[in-house]
């Protein structure tokens, strides 16, 4: 089989719960903490983490969504047209603890772009990075603060993250490309 499931819906939910607790533990002052998800799957995960934190702590954390397309360093190298999805961050990032969320960390270039995008909006106190999957092969000195699952991969493999809100199912799979 080409595509192999490595996380099911139940496991993803467990990981999101754990990540939420790790964030709560790290950020004592939740009022100064803002979640920022990288579009698109990171944005969905940020919503889920926010929901968990709100339930546990009976609070209302702000969530923003970041489109990093305009900050990419590989615009000319990707085949599909890099469509702009739009950034929706309706709070001031200045002096805030920003929890940056994405589905997969790979080369680290997306995170680099995201950090540039956020600092263009203001100077945050701190940026903390959370990824659901770390698949290795970094090309920049960037590491996540919290990782859902570390998945060793080879370069000819692909990680597919499916989330209900966008893909009708919750699942993470590894796929062998030819």
């Amino acid at each position: 089989m080409r595509e192999k499931e490595i996380l099911n819906a139940h496991e993803i939910d467990g990981i999101v719960t754990r990540l939420s607790f790790q964030i709560i533990e790290k950020c004592q002052d939740l009022s100064n903490m803002k979640l920022v998800g990288i579009k698109r799957r990171g944005a969905t995960l940020a919503d889920r983490i926010a929901k968990k934190i709100n339930e546990f702590k009976k609070t209302e954390v702000d969530v923003g969504y970041l489109d990093i397309t305009l900050y990419r360093d590989d615009l000319s190298e990707i085949s599909d047209f890099p469509q702009i999805l739009g950034t929706e961050i309706n709070f001031d990032v200045k002096n805030k603890n920003i929890i940056l969320v994405d589905d997969v960390i790979y080369t680290g270039r997306t995170v680099r772009a995201a950090m540039d995008a956020i600092t263009d909006l203001g100077r945050p106190k701190k940026i903390i990075f959370t990824a659901l999957i770390d698949r290795g092969h970094r090309e920049l000195p960037i590491q996540p603060d919290f990782t859902g699952k570390y998945v060793p991969t080879s370069l000819d493999e692909k990680i597919n993250v499916y989330l209900k809100e966008l893909d009708l199912k919750d699942s993470v799979s590894i796929e062998k490309m030819k």
């Binding site: 489109d67 305009l70 900050y71 615009l75 469509q83 702009i84 999805l85 739009g86 950034t87 929706e88 540039d116 995008a117 263009d120 909006l121 203001g122």
Partner: peptide
Amino acid sequence: DQAEKFKEINQRDVKKVPT
């Protein structure tokens, strides 16, 4: 559709992206 997405940049304090 793309133009709508660019509007947000013009509202920022730092109105510039490195694209």
